[in-house]
């Protein structure tokens, strides 16, 4: 434990004092502030003169300002935070000759990797919490509405999901920093991994669905064939953490969404179920809807870190 705390404190201090963190935080804070402000202004204009919906405060997070909503922004740029914090976590120590120094101290070997991962997660948590608080402040100023308890709880769960989502990318980047001795190579591998999982999986899902269950659109579309195609595509797309996170966070932030899927792709059974929900879902129900997504996201994060941990632990130190 003593080693873990020492490494954790050192890494946390490194993150917060690095230019890398300051630049990244400034960039994300700036985009978040602009997005939140524009969303606030849009909402104020659209809601003028009508009764305000119950969860108007949460709309700040899922209403697109100029280009995208805050939830979409975190889904897209969040991975970069994780990758930037982790791509040189271990190989930097190896390159500068400090890894061997750490490993010859009387600490358990896993204290090094655990301390680094936890410090990264803590940094992500501080960054996200700070942004959510600032956006909430802007919301209070522009909309003049105080969030209710359920909205606060939804935001808390949203924060937890976001932390796990970015921690997945942190774990992946750390894995590359263990596998590759060269820092530029691990940076490149991390970015390639992000591009593959975030964009190519969706494209691949489309191609796979069309190959397995082709839909001949020129001869009129059979409903069953279309549903089968959509089902395959959606299932494959769930292999992407970005899709998992986007669907889960959108459902959580918008209580009126009662499924993680798009309405046009709902099956008959879901359509019947959907009619039961005329009003917003209670928080517990929203959590149930996103339960599988949440479990998959947490599992992906743990597996990713678990692989990093195992590789680091079995890697031999050579002269």
């Amino acid at each position: 434990m003593k080693g873990l705390l020492a490494v954790f404190r050192k890494e946390l201090a490194d993150h917060f004092s690095s230019y890398r963190f300051v630049i990244l935080f400034a960039l994300i804070a700036m985009v978040s502030l602009i997005t939140a402000y524009m969303a606030g202004v849009t909402l104020r204009e659209n809601l003028a003169g009508i009764a305000k919906p119950r969860f108007v405060f949460l709309m700040l997070f899922n209403t697109a300002g100029a280009l995208f909503s805050l939830v979409q922004f975190v889904a897209f740029f969040g991975p970069l935070v994780g990758l930037v914090l982790g791509f040189d976590a271990v190989n930097r120590e190896r390159t500068q000759g400090t890894l061997i120094k750490l490993l010859t101290q009387p600490v358990f070997r896993d204290a090094v990797i655990n301390g680094k991962f936890l410090a990264g997660v803590a940094t992500i948590a501080v960054m996200l919490t700070g942004i959510v608080l600032v956006v909430s402040g802007i919301g209070l100023a522009t909309l003049g509405i105080v969030p209710g308890l359920e909205e606060l709880l939804r935001l808390t769960f949203y924060l937890i999901i976001s932390i796990f989502y970015i921690a997945f990318w942190l774990g992946a980047a750390m894995l590359f920093s263990i596998l590759f001795r060269s820092i530029p190579t691990s940076a490149l591998a991390s970015v390639a991994f992000w591009i593959f999982l975030s964009f190519f999986v969706s494209m691949g899902a489309e191609a796979l669905a069309d190959a397995v269950a082709p839909v001949n659109r020129s001869q009129g579309v059979a409903r069953e064939a279309l549903l089968r195609n959509a089902r395959i595509r959606d299932r494959v797309r769930l292999g992407s953490p970005m899709v998992l996170y986007s669907q889960a966070s959108a459902t959580l932030i918008d209580p009126l969404r009662n499924t993680t899927r798009a309405v046009v792709l709902m099956g008959p059974r879901e359509r019947i179920s959907a009619r039961r929900f005329q009003g917003p879902l209670p928080l517990g129900q929203s959590l149930l809807v996103i339960g599988p997504h949440l479990a998959a996201l947490v599992a992906m994060t743990l597996v990713c870190f678990g692989v990093s941990y195992t590789v680091f632990m079995v890697q031999e130190i050579r002269a």
């Binding site: 004092s17 500068q96 400090t98 890894l99 120094k101």
Partner: peptide, 13 residues
Amino acid sequence: VGYLPENVGFYDE
């Protein structure tokens, strides 16, 4: 045991 490796590294900052 204290160990000073060949080409020992430091945290320059």
